[in-house]
Amino acid sequence: MTVKTPLKWVGSKSKVMTELKKFLPAGQRLVEPFGGSCAVMMATDYPAYLVADINSDLINMYQQIQQHENAFIALAAKLFAQNASEQDYYALRDDFNNNPGMTLLYRAAAFLYLNRHAWRGVCRYNQNGGFNVPYEKIAKPYFPVDEIRDFATKAKRATFICADFADTLSMVQPGDVIYSDSPYDGTFSQYHTSGFARAEHEALADQLNQLVGKGFPVVVSNSDTEFNRKAYHDFTLSHITTSRSVTVAAGEGKKGAEIIATSNPKYWIGFDPAAGDESTVVQEVLS
C-alpha cells in the first residue's frame, strides 16, 4: 500500500502504511504533532484529526487547500506551467524567501512548486529561515491535482495548526490517539530552521511517557537506536525496515531499521456513547 499525497517528503510514511496501520488503535481523533506529508491522515479513517507542524509553510499550504481548493489548484497549475527551467526555479525560490508581500495563497502554491522541483523533495531551511534546497532536473515534474483534491476532501475532518510538539501534545483530550513521527534520532533533522537535536528527542519522549501514564494511547515511529530503545522502554517495540533516499545515489536502494513503539497504558480513556461526547470513561486495561 502506497499512499499518495500532494508533497514529496523525506521520511514520509506513504510506503509503510500497511504495516503502520496495524499499530494504530481506534479513537475519536488522531493527533499528529509532526504532520509531515499527511500520509497517515490520508491512509486512516478517524472521525477527526489534529495535525500540527512547526513548519509554517507546510501548515499554510494545508490550510489553503482546505479553505481554497479550486483557487489553490488554479494558481499552482499556473506556476508549474510557467516555470519550467532551472533558472525559473531559483527565481521563484528567491521570491519565496525574500518577498514579504507574498499572499498566503501564492506562498502555498509556491511551496508546492518548490517541493515538486527540489532535489528529492527535501524540505530544508537555512539559519535565516530561507528555503535552500537545490533544483533537481526532472523530465516532467508531476502536478498532483488528484492528490490535492483527495486531500481537500479528507481535510474537512482536520484542524491544522502551526505549533511545536509540546504545545500540540498539551491539547490532547479524552478519545485521542497520539501518533509521533518526529525527525529520526541520528538522521537528517533540518526540516526547519531550528532543527531537532537530542534535547528535543528527550523532551518529546518525556512528554509522551507522561501521556501514556495518563492513559492515552501513543504510537511512536523512530530510528532503531540505543537512545530510542531506552526512551521508550515501557512501550512494546516492533521493528520494520524502510527505504532511505537522502544521501543515496540516484537509482540505488538503502534500507534503514525503524521501530514502532506502542504504549501499554494501565488505563483506557474514551467516551461513553450512551452519555454523549462530554462524558469521559476511564477503564482499567486488563492484562
Rank of each mutant, 00 (worst) to 15 (best):
Y267P: 02
Q87L: 12
L20P: 05
Y106T: 15
L20R: 12
Q190F: 03
S37Y: 12
T103C: 14
Q207V: 11
T153D: 15
H117Y: 02
A74K: 13
P273N: 08
A155K: 00
V218T: 14
E32P: 04
Q67F: 15
E226R: 13
L211V: 08
R157Y: 10
V219E: 06
A166R: 06
D164L: 03
G130P: 01
D272P: 06
I54Q: 03
Y135C: 00
W119C: 03
A231S: 02
R198L: 15
R107A: 05
V133S: 00
L7K: 10
G213N: 13
A274W: 10
S12I: 00
T44S: 06
S182K: 04
L204A: 13
T247H: 15
T193Q: 13
A118H: 01
R120G: 00
N132P: 02
I138E: 03
R107T: 07
S279H: 06
A261S: 13
V31G: 02
G11A: 01
P174E: 01
E86S: 15
T193H: 09
K13S: 04
A155R: 00
S37Q: 06
G270K: 08
C123I: 14
F151W: 12
D234Y: 12
A109K: 09
G35L: 09
G101T: 09
A163G: 07
T2Y: 05
L104S: 08
S194M: 12
I73N: 06
A199L: 01
D234V: 11
P183F: 01
Y184A: 00
G11Q: 03
F188V: 09
Y113F: 12
Y113N: 00
L112K: 03
N98K: 08
R116Q: 07
A81M: 05
T103Y: 13
P265I: 11
M171F: 06
N99F: 02
D88Q: 13
T103A: 12
P265C: 11
F271W: 01
N222A: 04
A39R: 01
S238M: 13
A166V: 11
A261Q: 10
G130V: 02
T193K: 12
V133T: 00
H239D: 10
L112F: 08
H233Q: 15
G11M: 06
V145F: 06
F96K: 02
A74M: 11
P217V: 08
G36N: 02
G215L: 05
V31K: 08
P144Q: 05
A203P: 03
A163I: 07
Y62C: 09
T153N: 14
P47A: 15
M41W: 07
D167M: 06
M41S: 03
G215S: 12
Q28C: 05
P217R: 05
L79Q: 11
T153G: 05
Y89V: 00
N126M: 07
S85G: 10
S182R: 05
T44D: 10
K154A: 10
Q173W: 09
G121L: 14
Q63D: 13
I73A: 05
Q63F: 06
N126V: 10
P25K: 11
F188L: 15
D206R: 08
F72W: 08
E19M: 02
R120Y: 02
G270P: 04
Y106F: 04
F23W: 11
N115Y: 03
T225C: 15
F165E: 02
S238R: 15
Q283C: 08
R116Y: 00
Y46R: 10
G130N: 09
C162H: 04
G129H: 04
